[in-house]
Design a protein around this nucleic acid. Structure first.
Length: 168
DNA sequence: GCCAACGTTGGC
DNA sequence: GCCAACGTTGGC
């Protein structure tokens, strides 16, 4: 009932996938204010996370997919929660979807800001072989592009990757 | 480039 | 509402 107004809500953690040939951690770091709209998500389960559950201050594991050695390469921070993905309204956009309108949006996006690069990448292979990580959504259901990560998984991956806790 | 796993679409 | 056909993702 008070969803969205809960100022006491605990920070949540997420894993966002991206093909680096499309958008990489490097690209995020080079953006103005190191911030980017995470648009183009066209999967309903991922959409629902973006619309309802991803909130400012949340932590994001930045994962590079569809490459020879897929891996978490760094972290980002959510700076704006779910709002309508305008690329769905734009006929010129490759993410155009006429089912989504400004009055009744179907697709949502969030804004993320660069928060750190790992000293070493944490590969999918390593995650699969790590007792504390082998139950991750990433391993169990490999296709979801926005997925929740537990606090303990977040902590272990940051420890493996080697980055100071960067989010306030 | 292959293909398994999964999501979506559409006929019935 | 079932399910076959099809499209996409993403590891390998």
């Amino acid at each position: 009932m008070f969803r969205g107004n809960d100022v006491t809500r605990e920070r949540k953690y997420w894993l966002f996938k991206s093909e680096p040939s499309c958008f990489s951690l490097d690209d995020l770091e080079k953006r103005p204010e190191q911030t980017e709209q995470w648009d183009g998500v066209r999967n309903f389960q991922a959409r629902t996370f973006l619309r309802d559950e991803v909130k400012p201050g949340d932590g994001v594991l930045f994962y590079h997919s569809n490459i020879p050695r897929p891996a978490v390469v760094g972290i980002a921070k959510v700076v704006r929660g779910g709002y309508p993905d305008w690329t769905a309204f734009d006929p010129e956009s490759e993410h155009f979807d006429p089912r989504s309108t400004p009055d009744s949006p179907v697709w949502y996006m969030v804004d993320v800001r660069f928060a750190g690069r790992f000293r070493r990448e944490v590969s999918l292979e390593e995650i699969k072989g790590h007792p504390a990580l082998s139950g991750m959504e990433l391993v169990r259901q490999s296709r979801l592009s926005i997925q929740p990560v537990s606090k303990s998984e977040w902590d272990v991956i940051l420890e493996l990757g080697g980055v100071e806790e960067p989010i306030e």
